[in-house]
Nucleic acid binder design. Structure first.
Lengths: 232, 232
DNA sequence: GTCTATATACAGATAGAC
DNA sequence: GTCTATCTGTATATAGAC
């Protein structure tokens, strides 16, 4: 690769990386092209040498994400199985949550983009249907086994996806390091409490650890509010 | 009330009504002030005589909605009760779904507005927390009764609210008349099938009847994917 | 209060030098 | 390819006549 192309590629990834950070901090819709170029340390005009629009950039980020996922999953056969078996649902949810955490800027941006199109456009349904395609197939498999499901596989899959993606949007912290720990690091004398109170709104800052979210959702989606059989 | 004030009030409600229609058709973010005034048959400048901004108008619509809800619920005592009892959850979900249907323009607008603020702002969490306050109290009541819940009441309530509001956004039709019927009206010779295929995207138009949505979500949220106890 | 006409602001996109 | 400088489109908001 020539040195000019290398420089160009460097600029392109600088723009992408800057975009990811800006999307996470300000949200996709609030981010201006100039925010991205400024954060990347480039001039405004350079942007259009690499992407034709903000949406074009988002699609590129999405493609990167898919490519990475394809790599990681290479060779991982994923045979049909019983999602309702003891640990299965929790494990699947944990993976899904981790994927959303790792790609939070892209996931949130896609959600924001789907909403700007308005409710009548069907863009949000399309997104839900796309994101929950695999889940839908799992449910269809269960149904074909004669298992009674709570409803149409596509609808149930979409409902679960809606819950998951909206919670991820609302709860995943912008800082990719936060949220992993179960508590404050040992040795900190008087760290902030689990949930700080926002002085502006008076509402508690939601700071659920990842594990609690995944466990709670797994229990809710596996056995519902009534709980597993045999509970008083 | 004088005739001038009456005319003014008429304009104000015309603007509100036009806004509701525009929000439902184009979405809140896509709707321009001029779209509203044009649809109301008024001049652009008149808008600011009644509202200081699009957000101000939205707050007015929200206040109207709350006022109406207060009227309808006047005198309806709502004592603590067991949400997990047989028909209770379904009934509550049905009411919630109906409220969202009746106020779809406002509900979807609030969701869009919360998302423009970006993920880091916490606006979406605040909205979820506000919309699910009553549900959270019900869950806290259950917990205090010694019932084992799948997780923290506020988290579970938010998860259910997320599922419900996002599905409402994606699935509720803009036309307030559609979706009530269980099937095509009797007498129609060869009406369209239950789900039309969008020629643009090739994806199926989602057209679940309200009852199916409510029933499916009730089953999912009450007993989960595993189904009620005693199922093979 | 309502209208027409216009001002303000700013994001998106381009032109041309280097 | 990258930069600086600029143009265009458009939504919001205001001014002033009626």
């Amino acid at each position: 690769m020539g040195v000019r192309k290398a420089r160009a590629a460097q600029t392109e990834s600088a723009l992408k990386e800057a975009a990811r950070r800006q999307f996470a901090e300000r949200g996709y819709l609030n981010t201006k092209i100039t925010d991205i170029t400024a954060a990347a340390g480039r001039a405004t005009g350079s942007f259009y040498e690499h992407f034709s629009s903000k949406d074009d950039l988002l699609q590129a980020l999405l493609a990167d994400m898919h490519g990475q996922a394809r790599e990681e999953l290479a060779g991982d056969a994923h045979p049909p199985h019983d999602l309702a078996a003891p640990g299965q649902l929790r494990d699947h949810l944990a993976v899904a949550w981790q994927v959303m955490r790792d790609n939070r800027p892209v996931m949130t941006a896609l959600l924001e983009a789907a909403m700007t199109a308005g409710p009548a456009s069907g863009a949000l349904w399309d997104r839900l249907a796309q994101d929950t395609g695999v889940l839908r197939e799992h449910l269809e498999y269960l149904r074909d086994q004669g298992r009674p499901l709570p409803g149409d596989p596509a609808l149930i899959a979409a409902a679960m996806g809606a819950m998951l993606s909206m919670l991820a949007y609302a709860l995943l912290p912008a800082d990719p390091e936060a949220g992993h720990a179960a508590g404050p690091p040992a040795g900190t004398a008087a760290g902030p409490p689990g949930r700080a109170i926002d002085p502006q709104t008076g509402l508690p800052e939601p700071r659920y650890p990842d594990a609690e979210i995944v466990d709670s959702l797994a229990r809710l989606l596996l056995h519902g509010l009534a709980g597993p059989a045999g509970t008083p």
